[in-house]
Every structure is written in structure tokens, then in C-alpha cells.
Design a protein around this nucleic acid. Structure first.
Lengths: 198, 198
DNA sequence: TAGAATAGAGAACAAGTGGAGAACAAATCA
DNA sequence: TGATTTGTTCTCCACTTGTTCTCTATTCTA
């Protein structure tokens, strides 16, 4: 729903004066603030804001004009599955997943679901959810999400030496891969893991 | 339940004067404080606050208007560490730990921190947090918290046969233990696991 | 330029809100 | 025990507040 100019005005006024009121303003109070002299006129605008979801509808009650709380979306985005050898499956609508604070890094994080057994010896199993902190650099020994050759995304333990980057799986059936630094782009570092037992 | 303006007023007054009274205020006292002359009027407002969960309902008693304690720490209790061979360290003050819904069972749950490597081949490492659903029965193959000989608590995979109970570790350096059913008491079933990488 | 959309004024209305006070019953106190 | 306090329920009333109208002026647009 698109807002008219005046409606945006009024919404802005509501935002600006949010603190000034100890109580949410009534139509009359807001009219005075806006220099209107008719509640009826204001009512149409407020209805538009309600339609737009910016103002709480008052269901027959008289408790002033309340802005809808932009409900803080708890959780961090779940971006899909990661398998060695396949790019992250794009998930169009990033679903949010609640994660305990203890497992979060300091920076922005996201969640991936592990596909495959390449890290099984680190206790990371197929189907586990990993919490990844988005960052471009990692320390040696960190487990990282790495984009290799701009093509495939993989979860591996990293070792960076001058001139080469080694990605170690944690599965004795697989072998480490050696790349040049410009082949490997770090997309995040493992910060936490969650597993559900049905 | 949304509060009306006067109800907010009154709630604020209650908060502000919380210290001033040695006893929680009666309706009459609060009326005087608010400039009301009718208990009946106040009663309606207080009822709204009770509905909103801000004031304790008084069940027939005459003990004044008490605020409900606002704290509602969500999470499930963290009960300590579990090691094969040792009882759960008693934690006097059960700390609460937030856990994603996906990792919770249907019933009451608690969290333990794993000590030792006895389940390492199941991807359960030293220091991991496990979410346990409190129940006395388990299916074969479940990973359970079991009290053995009323003495030691351990996290193992269980197999129950007529006349015997076998507890399997997931560590090839350790061997399974066989007990009689009355030696083993199931205290919960593994539902989830969380691991943090510093 | 005609028509549509936007904005506002003001009247009238119904319902919600806040309060007074009486009457009661249970709890508490002397 | 009897007297009093205290919470509850009730009816009644004033007045705010949100809503719905109609009417008018202005601005935008095809």
C-alpha cells in the first residue's frame, strides 16, 4: 500500500513525537499537533496508516494512536544447506532461526544446514545446523565457509600459508585440497553448532 | 491486553510508590494517592492490570495491591556437567539457558554439559551442551542419561532386552556395559545438542 | 479541461472510558 | 464475639474518543 505525501508527513510526526507523549496521542491531540481542526480528516489518514500496517488498528477501543512495534525479528537468517562441492542452495525467503546467545559471534551471523559427512571427525554431521559469523578473514585452524573458484561453497578447516590455502576435511576418506589465495574466498567462520535428535 | 491511559497512569503510580509503602497499598490508600473517591472505580482499573499480568490477583485475601514480579527468564535449567562415571555435579542455583525450540522435546527439558569423550563417535564432544527431555522410558537406540547403581550418571546409547540393559559408549576405546534393569534408571533422553566454537 | 485523487471542515453518533456511590460478603482486628 | 476494614459488584452519569457522514477546496492527471 502506497502512502500519500500527507500520510507520510503524519507518520513522520508520529515517529518524531513518540517520546514526547507519555501516552499514545488521541486524535484530538494529534490534530492539535498537526494544526488540523477536524478529527474526521485525520481519521482518513490514520486509516491509511493502519492499512499500511504502520499503526495498530484500534478495535473499538479508545486508547490513542499507537504505532505498530516493528517486531524485532528474533533470530538469524537460515540460508540453506551447504555441501562440499555444491553452492549454497539459494533460499528466496530467508527464514529466521532462533539461536542461543552463547553460540553467536560478535558480528552478523547466519545458519546453514550441513549436507554430507566431510567434517564428521570434527563432530559435524549430516543435517546439523552450523552458526556462521560473516567475515572475510580467518585464523589458521578455524572452520570456515569458503567459496572456491567462485563456484562451490564448502565447510572446511583452513590453513593459510604464504602463497597457498589448504582446506582440510575432517574425514579420513577425503583428502585436503590446496589452492592459491585468490581461488578461495572466506565467507564466514564457524561459531556454533546445533543438532536435533528427533 | 493493552492498557488504557488511566491504567498506565495507575500502574506507574504503583511502581513509583512501591518503596514508599511497607505494606502493599490497599484500595483506599491508593484511591487517596490518586485522588479518587470511589474504591469501585479503582477496582475496574486494577482488574485490567491483573488481566494484563502486571498485578497479582488476590484470591479472596485482603493484603493490598501487589505488583507481579516482572521477571520471566525464559529458557530451561542448566543442571551441570555429566561425565561417565561421575554423578551430575549439583548446581545449587539452576541457571537458565535459552534453547531454540527446534531442539526441545515435547516434555520438560534440561541442559547438561558433556564431560569426556565417551560419545565422541556420535559427534558428542567434551564441552558440548546436550538438551535432555526428562522421561523414564526410552526406545532402543536412544541416547539417554542413565543413573547406574544409584551412584553414577552417564550419557550412553541404550539397548533394553528382557532381563538386561546394555549401555553403549560411542568410543571404540571403551566397551559396552551390561546391567540388570533394576540397576539402571533412565533420567532423560537426548533431544538436542549445542556446541560453541570460541 | 474534465475528472479523479487528495485534503480538510464540521456535524452527528455510538461506544468506550473514568468516576461516584451504594450495598455486600469475606477477611481481619479488638 | 462484634466491629471494622477491605475487596467486590452493581447501577448510574459525564464526557472523551473514534467513527461516519456530507460538503468544499485544492492539486494532480489523462
Amino acid at each position: 500500500m502506497k502512502l500519500t505525501r500527507r500520510q507520510q508527513d503524519i507518520y513522520q510526526t508520529l515517529l518524531d513525537n513518540r517520546e514526547r507523549f507519555d501516552h499514545p496521542p488521541t486524535y484530538d491531540e494529534l490534530c492539535r499537533l498537526l494544526g488540523l481542526s477536524s478529527r474526521g480528516s485525520l481519521h482518513k489518514h490514520i486509516q491509511a496508516l493502519v492499512q499500511a500496517g504502520l499503526v495498530e488498528p484500534m478495535e473499538g477501543l479508545q486508547r490513542g494512536i499507537r504505532l505498530t512495534e516493528p517486531e524485532k525479528p528474533e533470530g538469524i537468517p537460515f540460508l540453506g544447506r551447504i555441501a562440499a562441492g555444491r553452492p549454497i542452495e539459494a533460499i528466496t525467503q530467508a527464514e529466521l532461526m532462533k539461536v542461543p546467545d552463547e553460540l553467536l559471534g560478535r558480528g552478523p551471523c547466519y545458519v546453514l544446514q550441513v549436507a554430507g559427512d566431510s567434517m564428521i571427525e570434527e563432530g559435524i554431521f549430516d543435517g546439523d545446523f552450523v552458526i556462521i559469523e560473516r567475515q572475510e578473514r580467518a585464523d589458521n585452524g578455524d572452520i570456515v565457509v569458503a567459496l572456491v573458484n567462485n563456484d562451490e561453497v564448502t565447510l572446511k578447516k583452513i590453513e593459510q600459508k604464504p602463497g597457498q590455502v589448504i582446506l582440510y576435511p575432517a574425514n579420513s576418506a577425503m583428502s585436503a585440497m590446496v589452492y592459491t589465495p585468490d581461488q578461495v574466498q572466506i565467507q564466514g567462520v564457524l561459531r556454533g553448532l546445533m543438532r536435533g535428535y528427533s
